[in-house]
Simulated scan of single mutants.
Amino acid sequence: MDALLLIIGFICMLIGILGCFLPVLPGLGISWLGIVLLYFTTAVPANYWILGITLLITVVISVLDYTIPARGTKHFGGTKYGIWGTNIGLIIGILSPIPFGFLIGPFLGAFLGELFFGSKNHGRALKAASGSFIGFLASTFIQFLVCLLFLGLFISLVWQYKEALF
Rank of each mutant, 00 (worst) to 15 (best):
H75S: 13
L145Y: 00
F116V: 13
G152N: 06
L137N: 10
S119N: 09
T67W: 10
A129S: 14
G82K: 13
G78I: 07
T140Q: 11
G78C: 00
F141C: 05
N121F: 06
F117R: 03
P69S: 08
L112H: 00
S62V: 03
G118H: 05
F102Y: 13
Q143N: 04
L64G: 02
Y66I: 11
S139K: 04
Q143P: 00
A128R: 09
G72T: 00
I94T: 15
G123C: 10
I98W: 14
R124S: 12
S139I: 06
F136S: 06
T58G: 09
F154G: 01
K120S: 09
H75N: 13
L148N: 02
I61S: 03
E114C: 06
G101Y: 13
T79F: 10
F150S: 06
A138M: 12
F116P: 09
Q143K: 13
G113M: 12
P106D: 15
G85Y: 02
I142N: 00
F144E: 10
L149T: 00
I134N: 03
I92W: 09
L115E: 05
I68H: 06
K80G: 04
L95K: 01
I61M: 00
T79K: 03
G118E: 10
G113P: 07
G89R: 02
L95S: 01
T73D: 05
F133G: 02
T67Q: 12
L148C: 00
L151Q: 00
G78L: 01
